[in-house]
Design a protein around this nucleic acid. Structure first.
Lengths: 407, 407
DNA sequence: AGCTATTTGTATCTTGATTAAACAAACGGC
DNA sequence: GCCGTTTGTTTAATCAAGATACAAATAGCT
């Protein structure tokens, strides 16, 4: 039951019904492809005539195409329909503290080439130049891509959705940076920008691997790395909030008098489970970025710690176990607050998923209010699946399949 | 941008556009009443012809009626339209630990009579009998009510939305109680049941006082009493979650090793700000329900504490100040997690709003991640506004004005 | 009183959508 | 070569929005 906002509503016009059903057809082709008109009519519960008309329209608009004919036990063979992902590619960009990655993908998010690495520049102007050059090079190397639908950019920081300004990206040292217009001008392509945690959540929602039909419309992505980024999807829609900070679960407290967090407060979840927190737990003290005595520690990563834990290093195992427990305690807050169907966990620590999942689950059980909620599905998303890049691609590609807003 | 759920979608059929626009008209009449057809056409951005057709349909269905003609500077005078709230009343019921309250309201939520008080029975069967008798009596005393659209019941506990079972209501000692069917059978009316915190959020969203147009579609209601109940509304829709526990912010931790909470965990927000927590802070020790030495304390309520604070009692002031601080710290978690436009705070403690608002705001500022979010509007909802009863009424009345689900 | 300008509300026709039902096309098997 | 079956299309019916013209009501002015 949704209230119609009396100051912001959309009335239905003549073409609204058609728009709705067109998008449903597109979505079904996307998830069920290959699929025939008759199958569409059956799963949609409408007549084949209606499907034919919509399909012909989508064919004329080059959004789908007819492929091979399928097999049936008896009767006329169906002609299969496919999303026309050949002609419209997207470029995904993932800006991180030290490196920036580029990926060329088709409209369904499937990578069309290897991932390109670029240096990250702190100067916004320089960054735009590097990005634009990389994008042009990438597109030039792939002339088979007829046209590019746009560029999706993911940054580790807060982004204002309306203007696409990067409000604050601590690891990049950015405040109030306006990337979009410059990049759009330099590339001649539409540009979408989003926070990386949120983009990862989008990537999961729009993912097509395995059975895409079963991906829930209520999910949360928790990205654990330098900070803790969270993306919340409810009712198939990304939650942004009034001031673009919804989903900042990384800064909810576990203990008000807990360790100092980069945000200035004490006891944030992030201060317990970030990679830095885990490493400091291992070393038994704080790691200063510029302390000379920490030179060796600075090059020691979570991956190294996980290796040592697998090698039997008791201190590494203990550090991971503690992180696992705090991870679960924080996940309990997410479950109690949002109660999603599934929580995806990303970040380097997923390399140790088998080592941490039990402790995390135990902590989750400890603080969730019902048994059913305590069993909320947890799924690790390995680093090599590149959720941030897939999220960046989804920023551009997904709107083509989104539901029209009405009422 | 909303993803169409490929296994749960609704296609548009012939009447869908009309349904959408009809509901928009109804909603606008509800919020702008009295309003003319011409005004509707202007605010909707459609032709007067289209409005006339929809309005005539709604008139024929007796959902609205034509009232007096309005005034204009020049030209033909408009005929005003009103929601036909006369013929369809609703009964709201608020089941609390010791007492149960009944209210008769019209379809817009306006009370049609005084609030009736009944004894609460622990036995579900007895409770159903008491409720049904009270409802019948109430309707018999008001023969001017032509028909009753249903009964909305609010309980202090978890409710499974699909079946309307009360899964767990600690203060009533209920587990897995099925009120609806019995009550529906006894009264012959449809029955809706919901958790009280959520119902309060609904009450705010569907409220018509002052300028209803400005009520945000993203809001949270925090009800502070024996426990802490929270209702979250996003995109004009109540958030329930996969297992009906979404919005259990009362059991997010402020400190993992904080005071024991009724849920079994330590350091829940509820354990810091419930009425009991505030009172115990005042008395300097735990209050046992059956301890003989606490006889005097058991009859001492939060209202009494507020009176003493206003009288200058330093201990009372300190107890309230501490509660205010913890209230703000927990509100920060809500802001960081959901980032609503407005948070409504209900419960007895709102009687001391002027005493606590500054400390609460300061704590909120302390732990929110941006300045804009720290300024999230806080509004007290006094007890005498009966948000739970209005929420119960909205359970039955609001669906008539809800947006059709499509795509 | 009558005319004019103005606004509200209605009627009519066109366009475009879904729906139902008939029809054409393709195909395997007897 | 016919039959049953399934896919995909065509056609006519129905219904909604949109455009436009029109009728109705009203105040002000002459």
């Amino acid at each position: 039951m949704r209230r119609i906002n009396p100051s912001k509503f959309r009335i239905a016009h003549r073409g609204t019904s058609r728009d709705i059903n067109s998008q449903i057809v597109l979505s079904l082709v996307r998830t069920h492809q290959p699929i025939s008109r008759a199958d569409l009519a059956r799963t949609m519960g409408v007549s084949r005539a209606a499907v034919t008309l919509i399909v012909n329209d989508l064919l004329a608009r080059k959004l789908i195409f007819e492929g091979a004919t399928g097999e049936t036990v008896r009767g006329r063979k169906p002609t299969f329909l496919y999303i026309d992902s050949r002609s419209r590619a997207v470029v995904a960009a993932d800006i991180r503290a030290s490196q920036t990655f580029l990926m060329l993908a088709d409209l369904l998010g499937k990578p069309l080439a290897g991932i390109v690495s670029l240096p990250t520049r702190r100067e916004p102007k320089a960054m735009i130049e590097v990005l634009a050059a990389g994008i042009k090079k990438l597109l030039a190397e792939h002339p088979e891509v007829e046209s590019c639908a746009g560029v999706g950019v993911v940054v580790p920081g807060m982004v204002e959705h309306a203007t696409m300004r990067v409000l604050h990206a601590p690891t990049l040292g950015w405040r109030d940076v306006h990337l979009r217009d410059g990049l759009a001008a330099a590339t001649g392509l539409p540009v979408q920008i989003e926070n990386s945690g949120r983009a990862c959540a989008l990537a999961q929602m729009w993912s097509l691997r395995a059975d895409a039909v079963s991906i829930p419309s209520e999910l949360v992505f928790v990205s654990v790395s330098d900070g803790v980024g969270v993306g919340v999807i409810l009712n198939g829609e990304l939650l942004r909030g009034r001031h673009n900070i919804a989903g900042e679960f990384g800064h909810l407290p576990l203990s008000l008098d807990g360790p100092r967090c980069s945000c200035g407060a004490n006891g944030c979840w992030e201060a317990y489970i970030s990679n830095r927190a885990t490493l400091e737990r291992y070393f038994g003290r704080a790691i200063k970025a510029d302390g000379p005595e920490d030179a060796a520690h600075r090059t020691f990563t979570i991956d190294d710690l996980v290796s040592r834990a697998r090698g039997g290093d008791a201190k590494a195992i203990a550090a991971l176990a503690a992180t696992a427990r705090y991870l679960g305690l924080g996940l309990a807050s997410i479950v109690n607050a949002v109660n999603p169907t599934c929580i995806y966990v990303g970040g380097e620590i997923t390399a140790a998923w088998d080592l941490i999942v039990d402790a995390a689950r135990a902590a989750l059980v400890e603080r969730t209010v019902t048994a059913a909620a305590a069993e909320t599905e947890l799924r690790p998303v390995p680093v090599h699946e590149h959720p941030r890049l897939h999220g960046a691609a989804a920023l551009v590609a997904a709107p083509a399949f989104a539901a029209p807003v009405v009422a």
